[in-house]
Amino acid sequence: MGFWQDFFRKNGKALGLFLLGSVACWMLLMIILPQLFMLDFSFRTNVPPPLWGTEAHGYTFEHYRYMIYGSAQSTESYNFVDLSVFGRTILTAIFVTLIDVALCYPVAYYLAHVATGGWPRLMVMALIVPFWVNELLRAFAFKIMFGSTGIINNFLVAIGILDQPFDFIRNSVALYSGLSYAYILLMIFPIYNAVESLDKNQIEAARDLGSPWWRIHWRVVIPHAKPGITSGCTMVFMLTAGALAAPQILGGPSSLWFTQIIYQAFNQAGNWARGSAYAIILLATCIIFVLCVMKIFKVKLGEIAR
């Protein structure tokens, strides 16, 4: 009660109602309604738009069934194609998240506690500016870079490490790199913020008490930065699992990403119901997975929002 009284006293009635109303509208229109709509859709039979809302548009579990068992006509007992793509997408997203942590933690620590003078500013700029470039363009740039006549192959062949160009695309190296890079800022900044708020004296105290560098990180810096690390991991994992542009452009011919299947369901197969069901499955899996990981690492939901 006190919160709302305070809120209205501070902002006045009119402004307070406006603020409250716009946030509520935002939540309702942009987040809750579309998701509810999707959820509803995923449980209905797939009928063309003119029949929406009619008898024929009834409730069913068929799309969720389809994800697991495939079509009734199929000879396979499970929908191996979709399930394996789903599994690979989740595993790859985990892998990409781990790569990002491994890359970003040292950089964030360096920026926060080692670099002096103008360096940190310059490095942060160097990290941000490339992201002014459109996501698609960045993906294409990676494709060119990793292509068979791209700069990386040319270089490796020129210095004699490779005899002939390596197919980075078919071997998913380009995809992993592209995905790792795509959301790296969302990993760096939460970790940086968390690490930066650590009192330098604590690092020095640990050192003074005889601690080698790795134990300082293990016992002092990482525990302090844990909410930031978790926050970064959550965002990178969710966004990577839900990425579309990078897999579309950088994925090899044989490596589908789960979002591509969803995309196909919506756009090519015209099966909105199945697309919705698949999207809901992906969302639910990601949320459950993230909550489990947070439970394991004893991070509370409130902490990562700091």
């Binding site: 009192d199 004296n201 604590q202 020095e204 105290a205 640990a206 050192r207 003074d208 008490l209 005889g210 601690s211 080698p212 016992r219 002092v220 525990p223 302090h224």
Partner: peptide, 28 residues
């Protein structure tokens, strides 16, 4: 500093807030 026979008590103490009291004391 980790190899010197000195121990420093910082102006702001710099205790480790995420460890218990005894873990703090036994850190070295």
């Amino acid at each position: 500093p980790n190899k010197r026979p000195t121990a420093l008590i910082f102006q702001n103490l710099a205790l480790f807030p995420l460890m218990t009291v005894w873990e703090n004391i036994a850190f070295s």
